[in-house]
Lab assay of single mutants.
Amino acid sequence: MEVRTIKVFTTVDNINLHTQVVDMSMTYGQQFGPTYLDGADVTKIKPHNSHEGKTFYVLPNDDTLRVEAFEYYHTTDPSFLGRYMSALNHTKKWKYPQVNGLTSIKWADNNCYLATALLTLQQIELKFNPPALQDAYYRARAGEAANFCALILAYCNKTVGELGDVRETMSYLFQHANLDSCKRVLNVVCKTCGQQQTTLKGVEAVMYMGTLSYEQFKKGVQIPCTCGKQATKYLVQQESPFVMMSAPPAQYELKHGTFTCASEYTGNYQCGHYKHITSKETLYCIDGALLTKSSEYKGPITDVFYKENSYTTTIK
């Protein structure tokens, strides 16, 4: 009895394709271990004539594949690729409408935090270190965002349907971005203890939790000093293409032309909904596939993004 075979390709990165001759009487799992086709788990399936010449994702289970996976995804987590594939199996079914010149995501599976993050990423200057993220990001900007969303979920250790947080998501993504040249110098002034300067680099240099107003941050924000008295913390120097200011959701007025974009969060910790506000020729609110415009805006804002380049204080 002759062994019926077909020729397929296996890959971990969709760049390096490895030619395989597979036995049609055995499952993919018996031949390769966990195997995925377009995100779908085909591990328990036997090869079919229609699979001839198709590319299958496999887990990096030998040295060659491990090197290829690390170079593309910059992670050695053995569960990463499987999590990416199972997320992709959902995100490829989502709709990605162009809204006001940006790629958004039609609401499904509690994905409003991903839509808000995706919209924000198209408006701030950011370059990702893992080629996987950078490639998928370019495709997302062009309207094909399924891979990018699935990668975000995998890097953030999230599953489809789980509630997510924009600030946490951005923080994970910033860790995989090139923020080497970003720098922030802060000064804390206390009447009792004097003053202390701190220099922050990388992710810490672009994120701040405690106030939404970048102007206020430049002037000074009140913080408790270690001595128990009130101290003032203010920005001395900022070198970065953008800054992200966050605070627990509270009524906040966004003035046209003073910011790049913002995240609105309605609801409580267990259950809520994100919308995205962007400042173009007027203010726009993007909620999944829905767009509304207004000249002014007041609502429960939790993150505001500002364009920056270089700032030095005039406070002496």
Rank of each mutant, 00 (worst) to 15 (best):
R83W: 05
T211D: 08
D180N: 06
V189K: 14
A289H: 14
Y57E: 06
Y284W: 11
A108T: 07
Q197I: 09
G143M: 04
T192F: 11
S171C: 12
S240R: 00
V236R: 05
T103V: 08
Y155L: 04
C227A: 01
A142T: 10
E253T: 15
A108R: 15
T260M: 13
K158R: 07
L153Y: 11
I223R: 06
R167Q: 03
Y138I: 10
L102Y: 07
Q30I: 14
E68D: 09
K95R: 09
E239T: 12
I301F: 00
R167C: 04
Q216P: 03
G161N: 06
S171F: 09
S246W: 00
H276M: 07
E168I: 13
T313M: 11
P34R: 10
D135R: 11
N49V: 13
V21Q: 10
I124Y: 01
Q270Y: 12
N49H: 13
V160I: 09
S181V: 08
Q20Y: 11
K95E: 12
K7P: 09
L235F: 01
F80Q: 02
Q30M: 07
A87M: 06
M209F: 15
K219Q: 14
F70D: 09
Y297Q: 01
A205G: 04
A247V: 05
C112A: 03
L17I: 07
V166R: 02
G143N: 05
P249Y: 00
C156R: 02
T258V: 07
V203D: 07
L163N: 04
F128Y: 09
S240L: 01
S310E: 09
D109M: 10
I315P: 11
L151C: 03
Q237G: 07
K219E: 15
S79M: 12
H18C: 09
A117V: 11
Y137V: 07
H51G: 05
V185W: 04
S213Q: 05
N147H: 09
V8E: 05
L254V: 00
K298C: 09
C182T: 05
T159Q: 15
Q122L: 05
N187Q: 12
F80V: 04
N309L: 11
Q222N: 12
G82I: 11
N147Y: 10
T55P: 08
T260H: 08
S25C: 14
N147M: 14
A132I: 03
T278A: 14
D41L: 13
K229S: 14
L65M: 08
A145P: 13
T120V: 09
F128C: 02
Y57D: 06
C190K: 02
T169N: 02
L114M: 09
G164D: 03
K280I: 08
L235R: 00
K298E: 09
Y297M: 04
E253A: 12
K183S: 13
D165T: 02
N49Q: 07
V67R: 14
P60D: 10
V206F: 02
Q196G: 07
T211M: 11
L114D: 03
T55G: 07
T312E: 15
D63T: 08
E168Y: 07
V67G: 10
C193I: 01
R66S: 11
V3M: 14
S240D: 00
A262S: 01
S279C: 06
G202V: 02
V188N: 07
E68N: 14
V12Y: 09
N100A: 11
E162P: 05
R66I: 13
G272H: 00
G194L: 02
L102P: 03
K106V: 12
K233E: 14
S25W: 14
L114A: 00
N49F: 15
A289R: 04
P34G: 10
K95S: 14
V160C: 12
L102N: 03
Q270A: 12
Y269H: 15
E2T: 15
H90S: 11
N89F: 12
Y73K: 03
N100K: 14
T11R: 05
A140M: 14
A250M: 15
C285L: 12
L17G: 07
F70N: 08
V236S: 06
R4N: 13
L291K: 06
F80T: 04
S279N: 12
Y57C: 12
G53S: 10
P241L: 06
C190N: 00
L119R: 02
C225W: 01
L133T: 03
V221W: 07
K106W: 04
V243W: 02
G101A: 06
P47C: 08
K46R: 13
H74I: 05
Q122I: 03
Q98I: 12
A231K: 07
G101E: 05
E52D: 11
E264V: 08
F9K: 10
T292L: 08
R139N: 12
C156N: 06
Q175A: 14
I105M: 03
A140F: 08
I152L: 12
K191V: 15
L179S: 01
I152G: 02
F305D: 03
L119M: 06
S240G: 07
T192D: 13
Y36S: 06
Y96T: 04
F259E: 00
Q134S: 14
F32E: 06
T260G: 01
Y234P: 00
R83M: 07
N111L: 04
C271E: 15
I6A: 09
Y252K: 05
K233L: 14
H74T: 05
